[in-house]
Write a protein that binds this DNA or RNA. Structure first.
Lengths: 226, 226
DNA sequence: CTCCAAAAACTGTGATCACAGTTTGCGGGG
DNA sequence: CCCCGCAAACTGTGATCACAGTTTTTGGAG
């Protein structure tokens, strides 16, 4: 109304291939698509109700992020299988980059962040109580990345996102074998305490411990499952 | 010849989009495409003599690897600009993952690897002497990754590859400002000495020092150039 | 029932076209 | 000379089709 020039260059409309990317990514993170199974462009297209074209874009991106695999022999798509070696490398990488992000975010922690984290942690606990695996995975992911985003480290944040995407399928396997209540979220409280006083090293330690415990459980599950 | 069934399912023919990927990747690593400049699918297609379709696939991959950027406003493509923050994050990440790869590769070092590394290091020196920037970049890249590949750590290797891709444009800027002879390759010799006796920690230190020196020069160049 | 070969279905890849939004270039008025 | 406005060129996106290779299904012979 009163706007002299309603500068609205748009570019708002989210591209279809981005929506497709998010959909597949979510399915991968929550483990809805099991490791080892094959997928195809047209089947995904039919399932999501779009043409194969945006699927192609999204899949290309996911392959680059190693969240999907492409068989070099017949060029067919599949979700990467779980191996002990892969898990070990992913664990080590996460254990380096995520605590670093937490430490960098600590100085920028404010009341709004704490509040948001508390809500997400409550959602985590709620999902654990209900045994809702998908909800737990989503809430846990959102908790970590709401924190990491405050680090203002775009490159490291992208690395963490890629690692989480790759390790998502492992998590589902853990839940399938040991049950969701095998994981405790106490470290989240520890992290929030550190953030309240902007204690970077405390946040680093808390997140490192949180990851370490989770990864240990995954490793045990993978070793037991072979 | 005694093979009962010469199983040869093929799948050899390299896809066009992979060739395109390599071409653009090489152009970025060697810095032939300057940071900040815009590119377009059709212009790349015309330059490489293919249809826009495989370009699209390759670009999608490079965007996922953060080697190319896509302006969220007008969705146009460009090479990411150099910022001190980006360089700092990339340095820190490289300084963690690459020495780790060197240390993991050390136990698997054999005479063939040493020989190959010596050749590549000679190529590095040769390129430095001639002032051939492209040749130096290529040889230096090949030296590092010939070593890293022996680590047998696919996930970490891919991370290192992605980081190198992102930092490539920075290197070219350094050469443009301080000259190629500003960089010494002595650390390569130090690394090879450690590899001869399969000294993992020695290899780790040598590669860390090599990177550290290079990144310092880049940082100085970036700070001086603003 | 077993085994093998032909056919049908499905796979990723690449090309071409249409479309809407953005940028650029050019011309004319002030 | 400056600046505004319109048109042409260019941008990424999505759909559709064709093709070659692979897998799966099918059907018939032994």
């Amino acid at each position: 109304m009163s706007g002299p020039k309603s500068r609205k260059p748009l570019a708002d409309s989210v591209a279809v291939h981005d929506q497709v990317y998010d959909a597949i990514r979510q399915a991968l993170i929550t483990g809805r698509i099991a490791p080892g199974v094959g997928v195809s462009l047209r089947s995904l297209a039919a399932e999501l109700g779009v043409s194969p074209m945006p699927i192609r874009d999204a899949v290309r991106r996911l392959v680059a992020e190693r969240a999907l695999e492409i068989n070099p022999a017949n060029k067919r798509l599949s979700v990467p299988s779980l191996t002990a070696g892969r898990l070990e490398q992913l664990s080590m990488a996460r254990l380096w980059v995520e605590p670093e992000l937490a430490a960098r975010a600590a100085p920028h922690a404010d009341a709004a962040l704490i509040k948001r984290l508390r809500e997400l942690d409550a959602a985590v606990d709620e999902a654990l109580k209900l045994g809702d695996v998908d909800a737990y995975m989503t809430a846990n992911h959102d908790f970590h990345f709401a924190l990491y985003q405050r680090a203002g480290a775009e490159v490291l944040l992208a690395m963490a996102g890629g690692l989480w995407l790759q390790i998502g399928p492992f998590m589902r396997v853990v839940f399938g074998r040991v049950g969701a209540d095998g994981l405790v979220a106490d470290r989240h409280a520890e992290a929030m305490e550190a953030l309240k006083v902007q204690d970077a090293e405390g946040a680093r330690r808390a997140i490192a411990a949180d990851l370490s415990e989770g990864m240990d459980k995954m490793r045990a599950a993978v070793e037991a499952g072979r």
